[in-house]
Design a protein around this nucleic acid. Structure first.
Ligand SMILES: [Mn+2]
Ligand SMILES: [Mn+2]
Ligand SMILES: [Zn+2]
Ligand SMILES: [Zn+2]
Lengths: 153, 153
DNA sequence: ACACTATTGCAAATCGTTTGCAATAAACCA
DNA sequence: TGGTTTATTGCAAACGATTTGCAATAGTGT
């Protein structure tokens, strides 16, 4: 049985918790892994149904929630007006990754910038001291027009 | 008639567009202005009903959407899992303001960091060149524990 | 192969938000 | 000031995204 890295890792966690690796979960995991974008549940569902037309949308939601609770994906909202959640597979190795969101076509581009990390380091300390709070995480979302949309404007 | 700055400014825009300043709108505007937090439509509705129990929730939504379209408030999602939109009154003068979100009590603290602006300047150019895209805006959301929650942990 | 029970498909429920419509009331004018 | 116009309201129903109860199905360890 071929296992994508994600599916393999999840299977391990699954076993350790008395869970079961099903065909549905494997399918969703594999699609999630190939997808370099940030699919919504519906998008994943549409993709998955090409392989398994009997798959149910609620199974997709349940699987994504299960993955989220165990830290394999994290939910994102790139557009504060957009209702759907996007799911972001978490690569355990990669450092902090930030996102650019095209407000015209909704495309999302990931980027990592050392300067951002550096800045975050500064701000973390500064804001923390100034307001007496503990900063654990930071999400930077840039927005504007992607290459294609900028060209045709 | 007493006018909060926000209500006054909105009234002007309203007039210019053949709109009407109603008691409901004034109430919502005033609550929005006193609120230094980032209320959801439901929260605003609950507050407003203390003054006007006949106010309808759909009026709150319609007013907020109207304000958003004209740039008087902007929607925010501090918790990517939280379904509700929060509404952030826009202060025209203040520079870019960023947000810290306490993952324990959901409190939101605003802060402004000139370094972020500076970084944006850099990144705008760099990321833009590197990926060929146009960056218009940036939202930084820090998360962790607020002062109070950090203390009781 | 069998038993145990986690997971599924399905349908209905829930949540936040939007919409159609008839009644109301701001704004403008005689 | 009272009358006319029409933007805005309250109400109820619709909506889109997500969740849930339940009986049927199918992984897993034996
Ligand atoms: Mn991502
Ligand atoms: Mn704010
Ligand atoms: Zn685009
Ligand atoms: Zn807190």
């Amino acid at each position: 049985m071929i296992q994508t890295p994600l599916a393999a890792q999840v299977t391990q966690t699954l076993r350790a918790q008395g869970g079961r690796m099903t065909a549905q979960r494997r399918l969703i995991l594999d699609l999630l892994q190939e997808s370099d974008s940030h699919p919504t549940a519906e998008e994943l569902y549409a993709l998955a149904r090409q392989s398994d037309p009997s798959l149910n949308l609620s199974t997709v939601y349940r699987t994504l929630n299960w993955l989220e609770e165990r830290g394999f994906v994290s939910p994102r909202r790139f557009d504060d007006n957009h209702a759907h959640k996007h799911f972001d597979p978490v690569q355990p190795d990669a450092g902090h990754v930030h996102h650019f969101h095209c407000r015209n076509c909704d495309r999302v581009i990931e980027f990592s910038a050392p300067q951002v990390e550096q800045l975050l380091g500064q701000i973390r300390g500064e804001i923390a001291r100034q307001h007496g709070l503990r900063v654990d995480d930071a999400a930077l979302v840039l927005s504007g027009l992607c290459m294609d949309c900028a060209a045709s404007a």
